[in-house]
């Protein structure tokens, strides 16, 4: 699986994500700085990492979504390449228009940093095929702006089309319909607030994140 991880000023989960990809697939991703206008040829998988890109100026993900490299990511997504946005990466993907809706300040106003239980709501995507439908997994979250918001018609469409990938199985941030992660219409773009890259090996306290990368490798290798 040929992969890349995008790095913005203020990204801070880029190395964790690169590590997870390298450990699971055996191949280290290319690290792509935000000023690049082109991505390596024939990429299978693009990771948009967590962090506080551009210091969360204006809105979380707003500046990063308009950075030069994102035009290349949008093009790659349009070509059907797999794009995974985690946490700030999810915010960037919504701001870039690759995923619908927006991520607002957590309803409780607190930064939430803990393990949360998630229900798998789609087990057929490139990213989720190794999870069972309805399975409950545990993945950490660490965010201030994870409160997913969209109009009712968009939420109905996401649910009707099976595009909700993960739901919170416990109260976390006030997200509409407990949405923790969503897929694009074609299913090749996943945005999620929880951090699967942080639970790859037993030493990290669990391995529930690992299957997401294994599924991508199976589908894309």
């Amino acid at each position: 699986m040929k992969s890349a991880v995008i790095v913005f000023p203020g990204s801070n989960c880029d190395r964790d994500l690169a590590d997870a990809i390298a450990k699971v697939t055996g191949h280290a991703p290319a690290m792509i700085w935000h000023r690049e206008t082109m991505l390596p040829a024939n990429l299978d998988f693009i990771g948009v990492p967590g962090g506080f890109s551009y210091g969360d100026y204006l809105r979380s993900g707003a500046m990063a979504a308009r950075s030069p490299v994102m035009q290349a990511v949008i093009k790659a997504a349009g070509e059907g390449r797999a794009v995974l946005g985690i946490c700030n990466g999810f915010q960037v993907l919504t701001e870039a228009g690759l995923l619908p809706g927006a991520l607002m300040r957590n309803a409780g106003l607190n930064f939430v940093c803990r393990q949360v239980r998630l229900d798998v709501a789609n087990s057929q995507s490139v990213f989720t095929s190794l999870y069972a439908m309805g399975e409950t997994i545990t993945i950490p979250v660490a965010h201030h702006d994870g409160n997913y918001t969209a109009d009712a018609a968009t939420l109905d469409r996401l649910e009707g089309e099976g595009r909700v990938a993960f739901r919170y199985a416990e109260p976390v941030n006030g997200s509409a319909r407990d949405i923790a992660g969503i897929l694009s219409e074609d299913g090749n773009v996943l945005g999620m607030m929880p951090h699967p890259e942080r639970l790859i090996e037993a030493e990290q306290g669990g391995t529930d994140g690992r299957r997401l990368f294994e599924a991508a490798m199976l589908a894309l290798a």
Partner: peptide, 8 residues
């Protein structure tokens, strides 16, 4: 394009 996120 940038200043407002018209979703919200």
């Amino acid at each position: 394009q940038l200043l407002a996120n018209t979703v919200i």
